[in-house]
């Protein structure tokens, strides 16, 4: 169990790291004019919201992966700590998923003038959000601790396994839809070295934030259950 001072040091380090990443992202130059003709003028500087939005997307998958691992391990060992990990990580996955959806909508509005435009990744994230919300609603509807752990583990596994095909379905559905906005800007959007490093730093910061939040959530949940028992 890390002591209090380690925690403070960790959080201070994380804070400084994210600050540095944000500085790096904000000090990038304006958007390449060649790309600007595909998107609205607010994106000249506004494209930088990308660095405050998209770094959360991989975290959703990491958090869901942890839920999968916790679920499989619970069914194997029947130890409650795995259930605690699975459910805590699912809550965080839902949180990061919400962040991705909201910030993605803002990004989309700046770029193409609409908050929602059925982008395959956006759609997949939305479906993922529903899967996670379903998992957590099932948990709140089951009273017995053992049944809750066992049955939600099954849904956790099923939900994660469905993600690749969910993504393919979303993609073909979107491709069947007439597009309102030209997405070539998205395809042509590539990061230069400074941009890539800024994104990498933001991503690393988000991952460490997730790990810290997971640790806290697991601790709280464990203490709550000890008190109940």
């Amino acid at each position: 169990m890390p002591s209090r001072s380690y925690t403070v040091a960790f959080l201070a380090g994380l804070y400084l790291w994210v600050m540095a990443a944000m500085y790096r992202a904000l000090s990038l130059g304006p958007l390449d004019p060649a790309l600007l003709r595909y998107v609205g003028d607010p994106m000249r500087q506004g494209y930088k919201i990308f660095f405050f939005a998209m770094q959360n997307a991989p975290v959703v998958y990491i958090a869901f992966l942890a839920t999968l691992v916790g679920s499989v391990m619970y069914l194997k060992t029947r130890e409650m700590r795995w259930d605690i990990i699975a459910s805590s990580s699912a809550k965080l996955a839902l949180l990061f998923c919400t962040l991705v959806l909201v910030s993605g909508a803002i990004f989309s509005n700046l770029a193409w003038g609409a908050y929602w435009n059925w982008d395959p990744r956006q759609t997949t994230t939305l479906i993922l959000w529903f899967i996670l919300a379903g998992y957590l609603s099932l948990r709140s509807a089951l009273e017995d601790e053992e049944a809750r752990a066992r049955l939600s583990a099954v849904i956790g596994i099923l939900g994660f396994a469905g993600v690749p095909l969910t993504h393919i379905s979303a993609t073909i559905w979107v491709s069947n839809h007439p597009q309102l906005y030209d997405k070539a800007a998205g395809a042509g959007f590539s990061l230069d070295a400074q941009g890539a490093s800024a994104f990498g730093m933001m991503l690393l910061g988000a991952i460490f934030l997730y790990i810290y939040l997971l640790w806290v959530t697991v601790r709280i949940e464990t203490l709550e259950r000890v008190q109940e028992a």
Binding site: I127, F130, I131, A133, G134, Y135, S137, L138, I155, L158, G159, G162, L165, T166, I168, S169, A170, I172, W173
Partner: peptide
């Protein structure tokens, strides 16, 4: 709530 999102890869295609 639980089944609908899991059914989308059947429903959409």
């Amino acid at each position: 709530v639980v089944a609908m999102p899991l059914l989308l890869p059947v429903v959409i295609p």
